[in-house]
Design a protein around this nucleic acid. Sequence first.
DNA 1: GTGGTCTAGACCACC
DNA 2: GTGGTCTAGACCACT
Lengths: 127, 127, 127, 127
Amino acid sequence: MTVLTVAVDDATPPYEQLRRQFAQLIGSGILQPGERLPPVRQLAGDLGLAAGTVARTYRELEAAGLIRTRRGGGTRVADRPPTLTEDQRRQLLSEYASAYVGQALLVTADNRAILEAVQHALAVRTA
Amino acid sequence: MTVLTVAVDDATPPYEQLRRQFAQLIGSGILQPGERLPPVRQLAGDLGLAAGTVARTYRELEAAGLIRTRRGGGTRVADRPPTLTEDQRRQLLSEYASAYVGQALLVTADNRAILEAVQHALAVRTA
Amino acid sequence: MTVLTVAVDDATPPYEQLRRQFAQLIGSGILQPGERLPPVRQLAGDLGLAAGTVARTYRELEAAGLIRTRRGGGTRVADRPPTLTEDQRRQLLSEYASAYVGQALLVTADNRAILEAVQHALAVRTA
Amino acid sequence: MTVLTVAVDDATPPYEQLRRQFAQLIGSGILQPGERLPPVRQLAGDLGLAAGTVARTYRELEAAGLIRTRRGGGTRVADRPPTLTEDQRRQLLSEYASAYVGQALLVTADNRAILEAVQHALAVRTA
DNA sequence: GTGGTCTAGACCACC
DNA sequence: GTGGTCTAGACCACT
């Protein structure tokens, strides 16, 4: 679970950085339904955060239906994480791609490299 | 210039959202060297922000060498925006791609759609 | 910590006056690595400034790598403040000396007094 | 007269940077009583400033008694620039030296280099 | 309690 | 008219 990182110098607050990472891990299936998340205090210690900060992340993930917390039973990925309509999927994917291309163009004018970087990332993620 | 937007409900602070957007517009060449940026107060009004917030965005862009401001003379894109080494380019591109793929997998498991969305965004941007 | 002062009638803005003073205190070792800086609001109150003004000073010092701030955790001198190349050192020292001599000549034509004032200041600082 | 420079990226406003430089040139005798200063518009053009900015510098120098302006007669160094008491001289010199030492310590811990830089600057100035 | 950000409006420096 | 800085106070994120 040490895939998780928090960049202190990022203007985006830690609880939100964490939330996004969990959302990705769950949405991509790397974290499977029913799988256990690390205890709040342990994760907080590992990342150098206060427990309350991690607790807030879990609270927001639960509100979004991505995880479920049971008293004394730890925190687990929800059995059936909420889904989107096909239209919403397309819309979001298009926005993400546009944002990525915007960033990538800042860094290279090479369209081919921009595509290959995605292929590479896909290969790594779905390995 | 109304391509610029600020999402109030985003945890990332407005001055930083704006900064990133300008960085992309400049890096991708949509804003050309020497081209004028909107006056601080006008942009602030358009976006519903305080002038100081936009001023901070401009200040940070100038510190990064992307723009050049002259008191009383407006704000323009720098003549020679700073460049990166080839290694830095590759590193950044790889990070961006990884983040995009992470988001995309949240929304679809279809690798082909993930790539096509990038191709589409490229087509639009470089049109 | 009341070595710090802000001259209201100086054309140099307060945030910059403060920044320079801290830079000197840190660079000369009067403020040691790890040592705590006064809280933003306390310092602001002591100096008759708005909190945001002091906050800006701290922000710029952090950007320069001289200090390290942690949300909710106060502000401290960085562990390893950044260093300069030998060439940069010589260049800067030469500029500072030239500026000093320029000021001193305004006030006395006595070369010996100009040197002795420096010796005296050195004795005080490194005491 | 091209000894004069204005650093655009300095937080100290141009009119004040200029004022200090003239004060030094006059106080150190490099500009002699009665000697002519460059016309406002010419100097403004050379430095890339608006005429009003230079005019303000001259206005403040005249208010301080360092120069005198006569209609149609250009601007000249005052015949008897105002002087300071011996105590004021000592006090100011001490402050300047202290500021110099503060800056220098930021850049080198070598007391000897700090003194030699002053000797060098003196040699250049009084050459 | 500590730092970060934002607003609203004011004044200054500059072109 | 344009950018820069400051204030005063509010709310948020974090320890």
